[in-house]
Design a protein around this nucleic acid. Structure first.
Lengths: 119, 119
DNA sequence: CGGTATCCTGTCCGATACTG
DNA sequence: CAGTATCGGACAGGATACCG
């Protein structure tokens, strides 16, 4: 029997034509996997994220963090009421389900890279 | 001892600040993982790729295929000299090293998706 | 300290028409 | 059959300055 239908996948009200494009919709973009990579084993403050990702702008980092939070992958916790603020980001349980994916992505990048040390 | 240097990763003459961003630079974008996903187990003709990816435009499919070919992940083989042409795309050995990554991405997408069948 | 606001740029990608 | 040419829109992301 011929199947003239096509299956659409849905996550957070967005439609995707393929399971891989769904995942890429969530962790795609230039910086999201980098953030998740650094949060794999430890929580980090905003300023610590900036240190390990020196080439991202504040605006972009802020937007990407907000997007990851909206998708339920990370949590933002504020530890002070008055400035100086202490804000910490960490993976949620749902975010932790992405660790195998992030590891696979990181490992492949490691293996194929020629690395160069810059001052 | 303090390390004031930062490591830059290089692949195909492009620089990346992190092993994950390198991989995303290669398989990022809206369609590349979808193409690799469909080529995992079998080679496909151009028209067959169009059939399994009905929502991508010809232009974009063509560009993404060329990009994947330039990065050495797929090969393009022409089987005829006169029209109608027969062109087949398949993973290279190097492209096959990405299969675990594509699988991890696809599996996660599968697990979190709610799927809907559309006419 | 941990962000926003504003502005601007590049690039990705879709629509459509045409070709070897 | 398997693409390319041309055009244009949307949006991701950078630069910089400022705010609670």
């Amino acid at each position: 029997m011929k199947d003239n239908t096509s299956k659409i996948l849905i996550f957070n009200d967005k439609e995707y034509p393929c399971c891989t494009s769904l995942t890429m919709g969530v962790i795609g973009g230039k910086w999201k996997t980098v953030i998740l990579y650094h949060l794999q084993t430890t929580q980090l403050r905003y300023s610590e994220l900036r240190k390990v990702m020196p080439t991202v702008t504040e605006r972009t980092l802020s937007l990407q963090l907000k997007s990851l939070e909206e998708d339920g992958l990370i949590t933002r916790t504020v530890y002070t009421t008055k400035p100086p603020l202490k804000v910490v980001y960490s993976l949620t349980d749902f975010g932790k389900t992405l660790i195998p994916v992030v590891k696979a992505i990181a490992d492949w990048g490691d293996q194929v890279a020629k690395d160069v040390v810059k001052k």
